[in-house]
Nucleic acid binder design. Structure first.
Length: 508
DNA sequence: TTCCGACAGTGGGGTCGCAAT
DNA sequence: ATTGCGACCCCACTATCGGAA
């Protein structure tokens, strides 16, 4: 199959707003792709590369050759070239990589170049990713989408699942099994504004678990000496977390798949800032030395397999029993089962006081299902707010093209002026975007690089955020975590905005 | 007919590893 | 030694579609 066939379908999907229409276009193509190219087609049309990452980003794509006039590139040829690019990126010079990227793009028409550029950026923007592709695979193969979804949970990679479905239908999908050592797609959580709302969603009684601000881990043990650890995106981090490996090897069962969180704790048991945990987990060199300074702890909250028995389809309450039987009590995430709102709220207050992020409220009945945020797990975190001043704004992309979107936020400096604390684009409705674009252009003043519009600091905006973290980037040495707009405060003057001193006091 | 669950899009701060400067 | 890039940790929120109620 030619790349241009895939590109044309992608363009049709982009033009179609109805989801069923998108699914129709995708399924039509899946119906005519050969078995040897099915994985590539599914991968491209769900916005990812079979190679996952190839070491090519926006900078590398700034300078690419003139396009060809005739579309002759096959999927197989393009895929093969991308694999070579990845191989060179793994161990080789920039020049060699650049030459291969040039070779790839020189073989494409301008239409194909545009598609490949977006695909490499990870910004296909056709309104269809895994969720829509699952339905398309179901439609093209005749298998129920629940079977596609189920196989994806177990296999963790949709192109392989899709290719199997196209070749062998529902029987092939049901052949997928949990395999120790191969990552399972993790179950994700939705969110609720408070404990009472979360309980209502989950149904009572529900389990409340401490939400630790660390890194999600899936630990697989097969046999007496083999442990593999995966992240949420299914990357293998076994070598970076020896403490976890040792903890799992010390367990009596040698056939396990566990879900949990690693976190760096201080000697007094309170958590380090997230940055410390993230640094430890992503450091590959000097791990033995680092673990002495900053040891990692692990807390498990789910079991997908214990002693060779798959547990994914069991209700959460039964998986908990299996977990408690397999894992030492000290490695279990603190939890409370209750239907009482007051008791739940006290538990929430306790966990926040202990320095942790909040709670995850879980339905006792829900099976382990990948993706599907909000199905059975709901997170609750406390929310801070500040009144800050808009210092500048940046033009948006995609559906925000032509709108001033991303705000630069500043706190008032009592000495005079403002200190920037970060940016946000979250929480804005279309109406607010339109309003602020107009208003900002009135306030525009001073230098602009064509991208960022500097404003007279006159507008106060109420910002919600999760916490203040140390920042190597911003002048005050601090930045807001997960900042989002709640509302503008036309009733407040700039002199009423919060000061850097207030923000600094929140960092402790 | 209205409601609501699921999805995609739009970007945020921080850190590491690696190659080039 | 420093800088820039790519990848990946953590992530919140709104608009939209289409099935459920």
């Amino acid at each position: 199959m030619l790349l241009i066939d895939v590109v044309r379908v992608s363009e049709a999907v982009t033009r179609t707003s109805a989801r069923l229409g998108k699914i129709g276009h995708l399924a039509e193509l899946l119906g005519r792709v050969g078995p040897d190219e099915a994985e590539i087609a599914i991968s491209y049309l769900s916005g990812e590369l079979p190679q996952r990452q190839v070491g090519v980003g926006w900078r590398t794509l700034e300078d690419i050759p003139q396009p060809k006039l005739a579309a002759t590139a096959t999927l197989t040829a393009v895929d093969e070239l991308l694999s070579r690019i990845k191989a060179v990126s793994g161990q080789g010079s920039q020049a060699a990589r650049k030459a291969l990227v040039a070779e790839l793009f020189a073989g494409l028409t301008s239409q194909e170049q545009q598609f490949m550029r977006r695909l490499l950026h990870g910004e296909l923007r056709q309104g269809a990713l895994d969720g829509v592709m699952i339905e398309a695979v179901a439609k093209a193969s005749g298998a129920p989408s629940a079977d596609v979804r189920r196989a994806l949970t177990l296999r963790g990679w949709l192109p392989a699942v899709g290719a199997a479905a196209l070749g062998g239908g529902v029987e092939a999908l049901r052949g997928f099994r949990l395999e120790v050592g191969r990552a399972v797609s993790p179950m994700l959580a939705g969110s609720a504004p408070n404990v009472a709302a979360a309980l209502e969603k989950a149904g009572t009684p529900a389990a409340l678990e401490w939400k630790l601000d660390g890194v999600r881990v899936q630990a697989h043990r097969s046999g007496p000496s083999t442990v593999t650890v995966f992240t949420r995106t299914l990357d293998d981090i076994t070598a970076q977390v020896p403490e976890l490996v040792e903890a799992v090897l010390a367990m009596p069962s040698d056939d396990l798949v566990l879900d949990g969180e690693v976190i760096a704790l201080r000697p007094d048991g309170r958590p380090h800032p997230f940055q410390v945990t993230a640094s430890r987990v992503s450091s590959k060199t000097g791990v033995e030395r680092l673990r002495e300074q900053t040891p990692l702890s692990v807390f498990f909250f789910d079991a997908l397999r214990v002693d060779g028995v798959d547990l994914l389809d069991l209700p959460y309450s039964q998986r908990q029993e299996a977990l408690a039987g397999a894992v030492p009590p000290g490695l279990l995430t603190p939890r409370l089962v209750t239907g009482d709102v007051a008791e739940a709220e006290k538990f929430f207050t306790d966990v926040v006081r202990a320095g942790h992020e909040g709670l995850v409220v879980k339905s006792l009945a829900s099976p382990y299902a990948a993706g599907r945020r909000g199905a059975g797990w709901i997170k609750v975190k406390p929310r801070h707010t500040l009144d800050l001043v808009v210092l500048a704004a940046e033009w948006g992309h995609g559906r925000r093209e032509g709108k001033l979107s991303n705000l630069h936020l500043g706190a008032r400096d009592p000495e005079g002026g403002f200190v920037m604390l970060g940016k946000t684009f979250k929480g804005l409705t279309d109406e607010l975007l339109a309003w602020q674009t107009e208003r900002f252009l009135e306030l525009a003043e001073g230098p602009t690089d064509g991208w960022t519009v500097t404003l007279r600091p006159e507008l106060v905006v109420e910002i919600a955020f999760d916490g203040v973290q140390r920042s190597p980037r911003y002048p005050g040495g601090m930045a807001l975590r997960f900042a989002r707009v709640l509302r503008y405060r036309p009733d407040k003057r700039v002199e009423d905005a919060d000061t850097v001193d207030t923000v600094r006091s929140l960092m402790l």
